[in-house]
C-alpha cells in the first residue's frame, strides 16, 4: 500500500464517500424487487481502499444520508430513513463492510474466500436489519425475514458475484497505476 500523509487519508476517504453517494442510490428493478447498488458500491470501495478506509468512507456516506442528502436507495435520505423500519440494514452495512473488508484484504488472491467473506458480511447485515425490522413493526422474526430478506437474497448474491469478479480488476489496475 502506498504510504501517504494523514491529510491524504482524509481526502481519499471523503472523495470515496462521494463516489458511494453517486453509485449508492441507483437501482435496477429485477421483477418487483429493486436491486440497489449500495452494497456493490461498498464492495468496490473496499477493493479500492481496503478494510479501514473503506469502512470509514461508508460511515461518512451514512452520515451524509443522515443529514438529508438523497443517497440511500431510491434517492431517499434523512434521519427518518435511518430510524425507520429499514434502518437496521443501513447500520448492518457497517459490519458488512468490516467483515467483507477483512476477507478482501487478507485473502485477496482467493476469489472463493472473498466471496465467502462477502456472503458472511451480508448475513450479518441481514441479522441487524431483521432484528430492527421485527422490533419496529412488532413482526415475528419469520415475517421480518419474509419481507426484508428473502426477496433480496438472489440480487445480493449476484452483486457479490459481480464484486468478486470486478473488484480484483479494479484493485490490480489501481496497483499498476501506483495508487494502492
Amino acid at each position: 500500500m502506498v504510504k501517504k500523509s494523514k491529510i491524504y487519508q482524509m481526502t481519499i476517504i471523503g472523495v470515496m464517500a462521494a463516489v458511494i453517494c453517486i453509485l449508492g442510490p441507483l437501482s435496477i428493478p429485477i421483477g418487483v424487487v429493486p436491486v440497489t447498488f449500495t452494497n456493490l458500491a461498498i464492495y468496490f470501495s473496499l477493493y479500492a481502499l481496503g478494510i479501514k478506509r473503506g469502512t470509514v468512507s461508508y460511515l461518512i456516506y451514512m452520515l451524509i444520508g443522515f443529514i438529508g442528502l438523497p443517497v440511500f436507495s431510491n434517492f431517499s435520505g434523512g434521519p427518518s430513513k435511518l430510524l425507520g423500519p429499514t434502518g437496521g440494514f443501513i447500520i448492518g452495512f457497517i459490519f458488512m463492510a468490516a467483515i467483507s473488508g477483512y476477507f478482501i484484504d487478507c485473502f485477496f488472491n482467493s476469489r472463493a474466500l472473498c466471496f465467502l467473506g462477502m456472503v458472511l458480511g451480508m448475513a450479518v447485515c441481514y441479522a441487524f436489519g431483521t432484528i430492527w425490522l421485527s422490533y419496529q413493526g412488532k413482526l415475528t422474526i419469520g415475517a421480518a425475514v419474509a419481507v426484508g430478506v428473502t426477496p433480496f437474497i438472489l440480487g445480493d448474491l449476484i452483486k457479490i458475484l459481480i464484486a468478486a469478479v470486478l473488484g480484483p480488476q479494479i484493485r490490480k489496475r489501481l496497483m499498476k497505476a501506483g495508487l494502492f
Binding site: M10, I13, G14, A17, A18, V19, C21, I60, L63
Partner: peptide, 18 residues
C-alpha cells in the same frame, strides 16, 4: 473534526463525480 471535514469533502465532490 476529521469526520466533519470528510463529510464536507464528500459534499463538495458529489456534484463533481455525478
Amino acid at each position: 473534526h476529521e469526520i466533519a471535514m470528510m463529510m464536507t469533502i464528500a459534499l463538495r465532490f458529489i456534484p463533481t463525480f455525478a
